[in-house]
């Protein structure tokens, strides 16, 4: 129990630090970037045809962008201390409300992608470790190729093949369940490539160990060896690696959401960057940072569940 609390407490402190760091960093980046924020916000709000000096000056006055930066940063920090993320400079909507919508879309997509990648990558990895040979070599090539291909290209390829060529699934949109598989598969393919390799290596290591030999020698059927010895032992690095994969996932979400018109956090993040919409940028980056910490905490807990040694320590 102590280990559990320690693990969660460490993640909680980490979360608070992430929040502070991300918020201040976002603010600093926008301050340091060249270009006039009022013009950016005006062009995001009113479009290129109507983004004029007059509109920019009206935006500057409305949002108080001419106040000195310490005052604006202090206002945001004051807000975050009371869990108020402010309002978007572009749409005027409450950032927390917008994030609420976007978070659901991103979380759903990410979880589906993780589940798909586990469903594909882990069995394939184990099969490669067991069979070796051509399957293993072929898997390495495919995994390397998938991992080396940008998510954008994978997504476009899937879209052209499955949506355009075969007409099986819609190319984009999010208004029905049929729209989920393509973006999720785009994310999942890159993830599966990695989890397949990690599973294969972990399983191969366990298979080569003396205790596995002993299990076989004592006469256990191969299925029992796999179930009772190999899977559990190989499970720890595989689950731990899931945490590392989240980086790829977060990065992938930004690209995939934009390609598939998915109304998630990644999509919002890109727009916030372009429009210099600081509260929205802080909110999205914060949510992604906290999501990262939360998923890592979940990975810690899973590892503890699989590996009893950590619980005793």
């Amino acid at each position: 129990m102590g280990a559990l609390i320690r693990a969660l407490a460490a993640r909680l402190v980490q979360a608070a630090l992430v929040a502070l760091l991300v918020g201040v960093a976002c603010f600093a980046i926008v301050e340091l970037l060249p270009g006039d924020q009022a013009y950016r916000v005006a062009s995001a709000r009113y479009g290129e045809d109507m983004a004029s000096g007059k509109a920019a000056e009206a935006v500057r006055a409305e949002l108080g962008l001419d106040r000195p930066w310490p005052i604006r940063l202090a206002a945001w920090l004051g807000g975050i201390a009371t869990f108020d993320l402010g309002v978007s400079l572009v749409s005027g909507e409450n950032v927390a409300v917008e994030l609420g919508h976007q978070f659901g879309a991103t979380l759903g997509l990410s979880l589906l992608a993780l589940a798909l990648s586990a469903a594909v990558g882990i069995p394939l990895g184990i099969a490669m470790a067991l069979r070796g040979g051509a399957l293993d070599a072929g898997g390495l090539v495919v995994a390397a190729a998938l991992r080396a291909t940008p998510a954008y290209l994978i997504g476009l390829g899937l879209m052209l093949l499955i949506a355009v060529q075969w007409g099986l699934l819609p190319a984009a949109g999010y208004d029905n369940a049929a729209a989920w598989p393509l973006p999720a598969a785009t994310l999942a393919l890159g993830l599966a490539a990695m989890s397949m390799r990690v599973t294969r290596d972990a399983a191969a290591r366990v298979l080569a160990r003396a205790d596995t030999h002993f299990a076989r020698t004592k006469g256990l059927p191969e299925s029992a060896v796999l179930r009772r010895h190999v899977l559990r032992n190989a499970g720890v690095p595989v689950v731990a690696y899931l945490g590392v994969q989240l980086v790829w996932l977060v990065e992938g979400v930004v690209v995939v959401e934009s390609l598939f018109s998915w109304p998630g956090i990644g999509h919002a993040l890109i727009h916030a960057v372009i429009a210099r919409d600081v509260p929205m940028l802080q909110g999205t980056a914060l949510t992604m940072g906290l999501l990262f910490v939360a998923l890592n905490a979940a990975v810690d807990l899973l590892c503890l569940a699989i590996d009893p040694r950590g619980r005793r320590a």
Binding site: L168, P170, A184
Partner: peptide, 23 residues
């Protein structure tokens, strides 16, 4: 979209990917 609906949709989508074509 609520979180609950998202999860349900995700589950439906997982079924859909098993090869059901849109009619």
């Amino acid at each position: 979209m609520t979180k609950r609906r998202t999860v349900i949709l995700a589950a439906i989508a997982a079924v859909a990917i098993s090869g059901t074509a849109m009619t």
